[in-house]
Each structure stands twice: as structure tokens, then as C-alpha cells.
Design a binder for these strands. Structure first.
Lengths: 351, 351
DNA sequence: AAAGGCCGTGCAATCGATTGCAAAACCGCT
DNA sequence: AGCGGTTTTGCAATCGATTGCACGGCCTTT
């Protein structure tokens, strides 16, 4: 009395091509051809209909392993972010998934925690899993592994950073233009002594935003004071707190702070609070990213919005294009930021 | 002059078992046995060493498709959440992934947007992909599909909800106890007229927290006034705003609001602001979840923290257990909440 | 020294689909 | 009716690993 399997009962093995074939009285290969739109035309309409019917009735679903084994395609895409808990990534991922889904692909997501070693491990694991492509939203500028992957012809799209020198598919936002928007805004309010909480230079975003800040200041005929540029070691609240605290302790006065990202700006809030300064009455602050919930803080943060969802979607679309027509020349898409004015900016005291 | 493949050059097919076997001069099956820890003992130590060496030198990596085809295991786990952008989910997911990783599994994540139809599609897609198990963090209480999946013996763990009647693996937090903490806190501050922003009853969390609220009120010898219980149609800021607005427009006075979740509480902030009321001076508010950033809002939200990361990790661990020893009797783990006192609660005016 | 065991290895079937090639069926036309 | 030429369908190899079974060699035992 042969039992099906162990006690749990492996869920009765699924319907296979062969089952459908037997049911209709044709060869499995015929069924395969019917079910593959590309080869559907090879078989008589009548048989095709009968096969489709039977497949539907039996609830046939192709075995992805067999398919992948034969064709070497997994329909999996690896997505690597530094930290899913950082609120800018979920919207990006949703953008990615919505597009991948439509293409029949599935994303597998991993966090690098900004540790190169972890990143290496993850990339290896993804290659072991035979992902069809990779989307990297990690901010690193070191990229030996990635270069190797690309050299091997692996489809790849970067989000929010590029690799200088190498042509590579990438979706970035116009960081410099975003900084112009922020600076122009506070300048228009009447500020002239403007500080910058700068992101880490090892990230291309940190670097480009600093550059944008300097440009925008000069464009406004203001000299960016080096003593008002506070470098931060990470895009984290504590760093923003630390940096602005130091600025406030210095001798150079300022009435506005343009931060390289929202989290630095939020840290800045805390620094002001420590000193009993009020935002925006005493000091104006702007952020960058418009991440979720920054409209809920007090005061609601004036910031530069970058189209996170759109960026994810575009990146996924670019990847799908590479997958369908390999060898396309790498292109870099730039998405425009917009200024979101809320409550953290106001004219300077007595301005 | 046969080219390898198309212009891109399919990355030269990887090293296979057969390659390693040829190199060492043994049969592929021997290599397989060496590389599988469970069968390693069947082969001579000397040969085993030579095989391991060769495998390492050649950079052999098993083909996951072939493996899966033969063994019917994908090492994939489906994770379903309502909306990745909701900040409570990323920590849960990180908890899940950290454990799955260690077990060699990979998560594939999908968003249901709380739409049953989408949920159905996603579950189907995951089953088509042959996931080895499922973790559901969706809050729905309708569950025909899930029941079917379980009946088929599919390993499953629920997060933050259970299915009444059916025994099922689940990780939940002690919602009722959490509400007790919140109510006790405001009662201890001196409040007696306490309102509740209730979550949707179609979610077990909404239901249980309301129940907890009532119990805690009675335990404090206060009669929960039905007119101070405002139902919300969703766990969203707008609903909290709407609900508290209505309460404020009513005739029944109150000095504290215990919300069923942080987002409702944040919506409550807006309702107070509309009326020119200050928190906590005029009205105290508490949340539930302690989601990221609620410490940054003004005032920082007093709330009940639930161990999100831990919940994810526990759920994953429970799933792995099911996978290694199927047929274990379902168990439900309850994790304890803790009260986080911040700035949104204070003694009542003149209290 | 022969017989019986056991251990280590090889053989070959199998998982479920895809696909080049061969065979069969069918067409129109003379 | 028979022939060349297309369709249409079937056959069988293949992707890369796992695993039950058989075989051969060596060791022990009498």
C-alpha cells in the first residue's frame, strides 16, 4: 500500500506537460509548442484549442525549474540596497517590482548595510542563484565586483549613482539641480549666510550635492564659506546632529542650513533644539529626498523631492530592455527633482 | 567558426559536476556524493579530498535549477506584506531575511495593497514559482486561499494575525497587553476621560486592540464611553484625522486619546492642530507600533513598541522548523510589547 | 585457499521542459 | 493516382544534478 510520501504528504505532484499530452492524445512536445506563444503557430488550430482546454481544465502550470534548467533563465532579478529600513528605499523597490512583475520577473532583495564584504557575499549568492540581472541601489563608489560582473556580460542597472569612466546603465537624479532648487529657495527668502551639511564624499550623491551647493551659491553671487560646510561621515541623523552642533559652536554665524539629505536635516532639528533655537524662526533648514513622514515632523520639512518610485520603475524598465535586447549601449537617465516647500524655512530674523 | 552565442556572449556556461568528475577521474555521482554532506561518508577520504580540491579550483557551483528540478525544493520563501512603504514592515522583513539567509533560503517579497484580488494573484504566482514556504504579514481575516494552501500541506507562518478556529503557526504581539500599557500610562498621569481611535475590525489587530482598550479601562475602574470610541476605516493618517475631528466636534469631552496605531495617532495630531489644540498640554495622545521616525515628530510620540525585527526573525525560524520537520503541530508565539514614553503625553490640564 | 560480507564506486533512470530533426500527413497539381 | 512540396506531429537528446541498484574489490573467517 504505497503511501504518497511522508506523513505530511508532499502536495500531490503537480500536473505536467506529459499529463496534458496524455489527456489530449498528443505528444508532450506538441503541448509545449501550443503553450509557447512563439511556437503556437506550428500547430493546427483545432489541436491547439484542445490542448489549451485540457491544460486549463487540469490546471497545468509549467515547472519553473525544468524551464530554467533548459533555458538558463531564472526570471529572477537581484536588487541590492544598503538598508531597507531607510525610508527612501521602499518606494524605489515598489517601482522596481511593479515593472518587473509585468515582465514576469521577480525581485529578490538584499541589504548590504554598506559593508563591502557583505555586498560581495550577496552578489555571489545572487549569481549562484542565477539571477537574470541586477539592480544596485547601493551608494558605494568602489566597484571591482560590479565591473567583473559587467565584463561577464551581466545585465545591470545602477540607481542613484554611476561608475565614472565605465559606461553603465544608470538612473540618477539631478543632484546638482536639486541643490540649486534648495539654495535658490532660501536665497529668495532673504538668507545670505547659508551652511551645508555635506554627505560622505565616498558616495556620489554626497559629492555631487556638495558640488551643487557650491555652484548654486556662486550663481546667487554668494561666496560659500568653507567654515560653513560640515562634512558628515554617514547619511544618518546622529551625524547631522553632530555636524550642526559643531557649526553652532563655531564663530561663523548663519541663518539657514541646506542639508544633503533628510536624515541629516532631522539630526539638525535636534541640534537646534539642544541650543533652544527654533526652526524656522531662528534657523531655516532644508532636506533632500522627501522621504516618507518628513511631512509629519515638526516643523514639516522643506525638502527636495526626488521621484523614488519613478526611479525604481525606470531602472527596472532599463533592465528589461537589456534582457530582451542584449548589447544595447549603456545609457544614463536623469530624473528631475522638485522643491517641496513646507514649514522649516522662513525669512531670516529681521530679514 | 562557431561563436559561443550571440553578440553578448552568454557568459561561458558554468562548471558542472561532470567537469569536476572528469578532472578528478571519477564518476559524476561520486562528486555529487562528496559535495553533499549527508552522503560524504560514502566515499573514501582520499578521493573526497581530491574532489573537494578540484571543485574549489574550478570554482564549481551547483546549478540550482537542476537541483530544484530533482528535489522539488526551491529554497525560496514568499513573503507577503500589505505595503512595503508602511514603515513597520521593513524591520519585520529584515528580521525574516536575516534568519532565512542563515538557512540558505531567499525571500521574495510582494505587496498586496490590501486588495484580496491582488493577494490571490500573488499567492498563485508564488506557488507557481514553487516557494518552499510562505510568510504572510497581511492583516486580512478572510482566508479561503490560505486555508487551501495549508490543507495542501504548504508550510506557512502568519505575522501579526491568526486565523480563528484553525490551528496555524503565527507570531503575534500581545495587542491587548499593549493597550493595557497605554491606558495604564495615561490613567497614571491622571486622565479619566479617554478616547480610542479604533482600527478596522476586519483586521485582527484592530479588533484585539479595541478589546484591550475596553478591558484596560474597566481594570482602571473607568467606564469606556462608547461615544469616545471612534472607528477608523483604515490604519491611515487621514482616517485618524477624520475620526478625531469628529470626536472633537462631539459633545463628550476627553483629555487623552489612545490610538490603535501610530498612523492614526499622527492623523490625530493634525486634528488637534486644526482646532488650535496643543499636544500634550491640551490633549495627550498615544500610538501603537513605535514605527521608525515617530520619535522625530513633534511632539515625539508616546507609543507601544512591538519588537518588529524579532517578530520577523521568529516567524522565519518557525518556518524553517516546519521545513525541516514537517507535520509539527502549529504553535502561536506571543511577543511582549513595551511602553515608550515620549513627549505626547502629560497630566491633564489642572490635573 | 575458498566463501561470504561489506564497502566504495559506477551505471543509468529520473525530475519536466525545450528543440533540431525525421517522419508522417496533407495539399494541389498534372 | 502519383508526385513534389508544405505543414503538422512525433522522436529523442539535452539541460545538471540526485539516488537506487548492481558490480567489483578487499577483508575476514573457517
Amino acid at each position: 500500500m504505497a503511501r504518497n510520501a511522508s506523513a505530511t504528504g508532499a502536495p500531490r505532484s503537480r500536473v505536467t506537460l506529459r499529463d496534458v499530452a496524455r489527456r489530449v492524445g498528443v505528444h508532450p512536445s506538441t503541448v509545449s509548442r501550443v503553450l509557447n506563444p512563439r511556437t503556437r503557430g506550428m500547430v493546427t488550430a483545432d489541436i491547439a484549442r484542445r490542448v489549451t482546454d485540457a491544460a486549463g481544465r487540469l490546471g497545468y502550470a509549467p515547472n519553473p525549474f525544468a524551464y530554467s534548467l533548459k533555458t538558463n533563465r531564472s526570471f529572477l532579478v537581484g536588487v541590492l540596497v544598503p538598508d531597507l529600513v531607510n525610508p527612501i528605499f521602499p518606494p524605489i523597490i515598489r517601482g522596481i517590482e511593479s515593472v518587473l512583475d509585468r515582465g514576469g520577473y521577480t525581485a529578490i532583495i538584499a541589504n548590504s548595510d554598506n559593508q563591502p564584504e557583505r555586498e560581495r557575499l550577496i552578489l555571489e549568492k545572487m549569481q549562484a542563484r542565477q539571477v537574470d540581472g541586477l539592480i544596485l541601489a547601493t551608494a558605494h563608489r568602489s566597484d571591482a565586483l560590479v565591473a567583473k560582473y559587467m565584463a561577464a556580460g551581466g545585465p545591470l542597472v545602477l540607481i542613484n549613482r554611476t561608475i565614472e569612466g565605465t559606461p553603465v546603465h544608470a538612473v540618477v537624479n539631478e543632484d546638482r539641480r536639486g541643490m540649486h532648487l534648495a539654495v535658490q529657495h532660501v536665497v529668495a527668502l532673504g538668507h545670505t549666510r547659508i551652511a551645508h551639511l555635506a554627505g560622505p564624499p565616498r558616495f556620489s550623491t554626497g559629492q555631487r550635492r556638495l558640488q551643487g551647493f557650491r555652484e548654486a551659491m556662486r550663481a546667487a553671487r554668494l561666496r560659500p564659506d568653507p567654515r560653513l560646510i560640515a562634512p558628515c561621515a554617514a547619511f544618518a541623523e546622529e551625524e547631522g546632529l553632530r555636524a550642526l552642533r559643531r557649526l553652532l559652536g563655531g564663530r561663523v554665524r548663519f541663518t539657514a542650513v541646506v542639508a544633503a539629505n533628510d536624515r541629516l536635516a532631522l539630526g539638525g532639528y535636534d541640534a537646534l533644539a539642544e541650543r533652544g533655537l527654533r526652526c524656522p524662526e531662528d534657523v531655516s533648514i532644508t532636506g533632500f529626498n522627501d522621504m516618507p513622514l518628513v511631512d509629519k515632523v515638526r516643523p514639516p520639512l522643506t525638502t527636495v523631492r526626488i521621484p523614488l518610485y519613478e526611479m525604481g520603475a525606470r531602472a527596472a524598465r532599463m533592465l528589461l530592455e537589456q534582457l530582451t535586447q542584449p548589447g544595447a549601449t549603456p545609457q544614463s537617465v536623469q530624473l528631475p527633482p522638485t522643491l517641496i516647500v513646507r514649514g522649516s524655512t522662513a525669512p531670516p530674523r529681521g530679514g
